[in-house]
Structure formats: C-alpha cells, structure tokens
C-alpha cells in the first residue's frame, strides 16, 4: 500500500516536472507582458525598469531556473497584474471550481447511476428509452451553445435566473445544469452497459435462485460489481471540470480557475498560469489516488 502510494507519487512528480517545463516555455511564446501592462506611450526606460523588476530581462533559461528554485520553496512568484502572490487568486478560483465540480458530479453520479441501473434492468423499457435520449443529447449538444441559449431564455427572456456571478443558489443553477449534461450522458451509458453485464452474471442468477428481491439484486448484488468501470469515468469527468470548465465559467462569469487561466493567458500573467496548472495537477493526482483506493474498497480482489 505504502509502496503503491510512493510509486504513484513519483510517477506524478515526473509528469508534473515535464508539464512545468512545457508550460513555462510555451507561455513565453505568447509574447512579453510588458507590452500589455504598460501603456503604448511608456518610455523605453519604464519598459526596461518593468522588465528588470519582474526578471524578464534575463535569458529564458536563467528565468526558468530562478522560477524552479523559487518553486521548490513553494514560492509561486508574484502576479504581474495583481499586487499579490500568484498562488492567491489561484486558490480562490480553485475553491470555486472545486465546489462547482463537486456539486455537479454529485448530481451526475446520483442521477446516472439510478437511471442507468433502471435502464439496464429492463432493456428497451421506459427507463431505457429515457436514458438513450439523454445520453444522445449529452454526447451531441455543444455546451457553449446550450449556455448561451440558457442565458437568452432563462435570464433575458423569462428573467428567472441571473446571468452571471455566484451570489445565491439561483446563480449556480445554470452553470451546474450546463456542466451536468455531457458527463451525465457519458456516465449513464457506462452505467447502463456495465449493469447489463452485471445483471446477466452468474451471481445474479444465484441471488434469484435464493429468492432475493429485485431491488437488492439491482442495487446490492449487481451495482457494486458494475461500479468499477463507472468510477473511472466519473474520475475522468471530474478531472475535466477541475481542469477548468473554461467555456462555462467564462460565459457565466463564474470566478473559477478556468476563467482565471483564460484571463491570465490573455494578460500574459505567467506566474498565475503556472500556479493554476500546478494546483489543478495536484488536485487531479489526489483525485486519481482516491479513485484507486475506492477500487480496493469496492472490490476485495484488488489489493495494492
């Protein structure tokens, strides 16, 4: 178990290092933040001064080494746009995104598992038709389009829901609803397929021969076996939202890490971009470990 965690930590650290190298140099390709930050009329002297203060006058490689040295001491550098350490806005944004991901995925999981299981129990029946409709919709509907249509209908047209922000429960409804659609359709399909296999298995036959009722057969005997592939997909989809539900956050003005990243890229605020990437990467590492541990909880045959 300890060995397993170590292995995973080392493997993740290696990918994180590669990621830092890649993002550090790629982000520099977008240009010099000085041009954006200072007015067009700024003197060359002011520009040089700004570059010196932020270390932008150094060769790229030495900038990188200075960055890494700071990073080892958990110093993510200063934001060039905001007078604060780069990590601060990232953690604030991440807290919002984490809440958004948790609420969305909790609802998705509950809904997909219930509907998917019922669909699998009677293939071709009512629940199966409903499930097919939703998963087709989830797979085919572009979220930016739905988000805009939702604003047009519910905010502008009907005036029921606010267009942006996070002030109240009402503010959350549209972002959660739009983010819900795609993972719901996908996970629903996986639950349905996996449950059909489980319900056709030999141990379900045994349970029926024992005189066990339908509800425990579906939700006790079959479901726990069917969940293994499902939690993999749940993990992937959670990671996708944590990585920045960029479009949805931007459209609904939701102050999450996705929106922060887009803003920082446009502003060439390199330290914020890197901090945001590292925080989400760390979160996804934790998420994957949690999924692996959940495997072992669900299936006693899996031991690390």
């Amino acid at each position: 178990m300890k060995k397993f965690l170590w292995k995973r930590a080392v493997a993740s650290a290696i990918s994180l290092i590669c990621l830092i190298i890649l993002v550090f140099f790629l982000s520099r390709l977008t240009g010099d933040p000085t041009d954006l930050f200072l007015p067009e009329t700024a003197t060359q002297e002011a520009r040089d001064n700004y570059r010196r203060v932020h270390g932008l006058d150094q060769p790229l490689v030495s900038q990188f080494f200075r960055y890494v040295t700071d990073l080892v001491q958990l110093n993510f550098g200063e934001s060039v746009r905001r007078a604060e350490p780069a990590i601060d806005p990232v953690l604030r944004g991440f807290a919002w995104t984490l809440q958004l991901a948790t609420v969305t995925m909790a609802l998705v999981t509950l809904a997909a598992i219930t509907l998917g299981s019922l669909a699998a129990f009677h293939v071709g029946g009512f629940f199966d038709r409903v499930a097919t409709f939703f998963s087709l919709m989830g797979a085919s509907a572009p979220d930016f389009w739905i988000a805009i249509i939702a604003i047009v209908v519910f905010s502008v047209g009907l005036g029921w829901l606010p267009t942006s922000g996070t002030g109240s429960v009402w503010h959350w409804i549209m972002p959660v609803a739009v983010l819900f659609i795609r993972p719901f359709g996908l996970i629903l399909q996986v639950v349905r397929g996996s449950m059909i296999t489980a319900l056709n298995s030999a141990y379900v036959k045994t349970a029926r021969a024992k005189g066990v009722e339908n509800r425990p057969i579906i939700f006790v005997h079959a479901l726990r076996n069917a969940l293994l592939p499902v939690i993999t997909v749940i993990g992937d989809q959670t990671a996708a939202i944590l990585n920045g539900a960029v479009i949805v956050e931007t459209i609904f003005g939701f102050p999450g890490v996705g929106k922060l990243m887009i803003d920082s890229i446009l502003q060439r605020d390199f330290n914020v971009i890197l901090a945001a990437i590292m925080v989400t990467a760390f979160a996804i590492f934790i998420l994957n470990i949690m999924i692996d541990l959940l495997y072992a909880v669900l299936d006693p045959r899996i031991r690390y």
Partner: peptide, 15 residues
C-alpha cells in the same frame, strides 16, 4: 434451492 457449475462465478465476488 439450487447450486450451479463453476461456483466462483456464481458467488458474488465483492461480498
């Protein structure tokens, strides 16, 4: 009551 061939697959692996 009934018992089957291949008891491994006829017992639920996770309980």
């Amino acid at each position: 009551a009934m018992i089957f061939q291949d008891p491994l697959s006829h017992l639920n692996p996770v309980y």
